[in-house]
Write a protein that binds this DNA or RNA. Structure first.
Length: 626
RNA sequence: GGGCCCGUGGCCUAGAAUGGAUAAGGCGGCGGCCUCCUAAGCCGCAGAUCGUGGGUUCAAAUCCCACCGGGCCCGCCA
């Protein structure tokens, strides 16, 4: 085994030398060995000794006679640096990778634990824009990794199929003369979002009669019968099926679609409201500006209490969306007695089934042993999500399991806003997208642009390929490029879309990763020699660097189980690729002498396994020839 | 007014949860490397008072406080 075994060995050596809590870290530079410890600093502190002296003493008291991987320990500047026997270490790394294959990097930390993750959740009245794509790509990547770690995962997509945003579109079709069939070459979701919705919003804002009509439509949709209700149902289904095409194109998959209208049927709120009243978490406002409302008592919350209590039931007895969200969240944590029924909606590209809530359905989800509920929702919902979480606590549920996975939005650069016909103010650097105003870049639109750009490049490199083959590879490059650029930045940082910049296929991009993988494949393909895990007498620095990087994967993924941060994984993918390219440049494989060659083939093979696993986790399509 | 987030070379970012040994990449600029595993690659050069000022510490980009700049949230909308 690789790094984990090495760390365990170093820890046990330190314990034998009398250190209670051996703190091991990866060395910052190879000259400091593979791993290092700063225990000397900790030990020196209370005794006021010199850390350098403590380190020296520790070094001398470490007994290496039974060590397997550790070859030497050196005290340098107070650090204890562990160097390994690279011959043994290299072989153990390769063996581990070959033994575990497609499972390499996984551990069983998720076994027997259930996780719910909800992502995408785009209103079914428009196509996905690039901001929604960030949500989908983050959510899907988290799902892929958790699945890999052995978690029993359920992927939800919440569909808000009622409310004003739907009524806007319905109004367009019913009263503004729009035909249900989109123009030539336009998808239905684009037609609804780009044309009908935008126009309808504009008209209703200007015309009180239309605004009133829209209110009636909202009510009728909620009543679950009548021609507007039926029309809405039709629109929702058609838009949703188009949206899913985009999601699938991005590589995402879902288990369950929870339709808001169906969820409301179960009257979760009534039950949750009852419990909130029992717990004295809500109260009725008999006077003041909120007279007639039921409010959630936030006085016990350190921060939220400063902004006043939250209305859950309005004076007209209808619920606010946050009330419905609390009820729905309670369901996710198993805090309601109701159990939705489902029927099959369709299939994901991988062949698994997607279920949708349905009164006539007979399938039920098996929610037990829930470990975490992850809700991928942009950062603007931080406050409401915090309220939901707090309410779950008041209900006596395990609110710490409820995670708002908040990510910053995608905004437009000045140049992209201008391209969309929006003139930014002189000092405006960031332009926020808006569905209502039709100011957004569609996810498909951007993938198409990327695909066309990539196709030029592919065709140039492979003049003998037919158009179909070129397009196929270009599509994979485009999807990879988009996914990578959306999951790589810190979730706390806004992405300011710059399509010019994004169309580049060099440097720290997914095409670089894909290309690196393809290069490795070619070496294996062209060789008919034996693959070996036995290193020659001396390893080159590039070989060591690459091997070393590969050993990080299991630990990195283990950390993911705790922090759910996608970024470090994307970062790791780049470094791993970069290390391979260095190796590729400096350590020839196919024309090395036989013993070196078979070992290097082993490294290349191991690289394709480890790197392939990482690419799959990130949802970056693998291309063997590009 | 209250709260949250961000601020690292010209531009974009990593490093920050667990403080540690010379701050790491990409883009752009300049200069190199294909008779040999795909040059979507590799190497070199130039370019950083890690927003500012204090503090804690043997040690701060990282922790604490204040301030400055930018963004977001605070509706009987969702």
């Amino acid at each position: 085994m690789g790094l984990r075994k090495l760390i365990a060995e170093a820890e046990s050596l330190l314990r034998e030398a009398g250190v209670e809590d051996p703190k091991i870290q990866l060395s910052k530079s190879p000259e400091y060995g593979e791993i290092s410890s700063t225990v000397a600093f900790q030990l020196a502190r209370p005794s006021k000794k010199n850390p350098l002296v403590v380190a020296e003493e520790l070094m001398r008291s470490i007994d290496l006679s039974n060590a397997r991987l550790v070859a030497s320990v050196e005290a340098v500047n107070g650090y204890l640096n562990f160097k390994v026997d690279w011959n043994k270490y290299a072989e153990s790394i390769l063996r581990e990778i070959f033994e575990e294959g497609e499972r390499y990097g996984s551990s069983r930390i998720g076994e027997g634990k259930q996780v719910i993750i909800e992502h995408t959740s785009v209103n079914p009245n428009k196509p996905l824009h690039i901001g929604h794509a960030r949500n989908t790509c983050l959510g899907d990547t988290i799902a892929r990794i958790l699945k890999f770690l052995g978690y029993d995962l359920i992927v939800l997509n919440y569909i808000d199929d009622s409310g004003t945003q739907m009524a806007d579109v319905v109004l367009g079709f019913s009263d503004l003369g729009y035909q249900l069939d989109p123009p030539e070459n336009m998808r239905f979701d684009e037609y609804c979002g780009d044309v009908v919705y935008v126009e309808s919003v504009k008209r209703a804002e200007a015309d009180p009669v239309l605004a009133e009509k829209r209110r009636q439509i909202v009510k009728e949709i909620e009543s679950r019968s009548g021609k507007y209700f039926e029309l809405n149902k039709l629109i929702v289904e058609r838009v949703l099926r188009d949206q899913l095409k985009t999601c699938w194109r991005l590589g995402a998959r879902y288990d369950v679609l929870n339709m808001e209208s169906d969820v409301l049927e179960y009257r979760l709120w009534d039950e949750v409201f009852e419990k909130l009243r029992e717990k004295n978490a809500v109260y009725y406002a008999g006077s003041g500006p909120k007279t007639g409302c039921w409010l959630l008592d936030l006085s016990g919350h350190p921060v939220l209490s400063r902004e006043g209590d939250e209305v859950l039931v309005k004076s007209d007895h209808t619920t606010t969306y946050i009330a419905r969200d609390i009820a729905y969240a309670a369901w996710k944590l198993g805090g309601t007695s109701k159990d939705f029924t489902y029927e099959i909606f369709g299939q994901n590209p991988d062949g698994t089934e997607i279920y949708v809530t349905s009164g006539n359905g007979s399938t039920r989800l098996k929610l037990s042993k829930i470990e975490k509920v992850i809700n991928v929702i942009d950062v603007r919902q931080r406050r409401p999500q915090e309220i939901v979480k707090y309410a779950l606590g008041l209900l006596g549920l395990q609110s710490e399991k409820y995670i708002h996975y908040a990510y910053e939005v995608v905004a437009l650069s000045r140049s992209d806003a201008e391209k969309l016909g929006y003139p930014p103010d002189p000092d405006q650097q960031v332009i926020h997208m808006s569905g209502r105003r039709g100011l957004y870049v569609k996810a498909d639109q951007l993938i198409d642009m990327l695909r066309d750009r990539a196709a030029e490049e592919v065709a140039q490199r492979h003049p003998d390929w037919d158009r179909r083959r070129v397009e196929e590879v270009a599509e994979k490059i485009a999807v990879g490029a988009l996914r990578y650029s959306l999951i790589k930045p810190d979730i706390d940082k806004m992405i300011i879309l710059n399509t010019e910049e994004m169309l580049k296929l060099e440097g720290d991009t997914a095409p670089y990763l894909q290309y690196t993988y393809a290069r490795a494949c070619r070496i294996l393909e062209k060789s008919d020699s034996q693959i070996s895990t036995k290193p020659p007498d001396n390893l080159t620095e590039d070989e060591r660097t690459l091997l070393r990087r590969m050993t990080y994967l299991p630990i990195l993924l283990q950390e993911f189980g705790e922090n759910l941060l996608v970024k470090p994984i994307a970062n790791y993918a780049y470094k791993l690729a970069s290390d391979f390219n260095n190796f590729y440049e400096k350590s020839p494989v196919l024309w090395a002498e036989e013993s070196v060659k078979s070992f290097r083939l082993g490294i290349v093979k191991a690289f394709t396994i480890a790197f392939g696993n990482v690419l799959r986790l990130l949802g970056i399509p693998i291309i063997e020839l590009m």
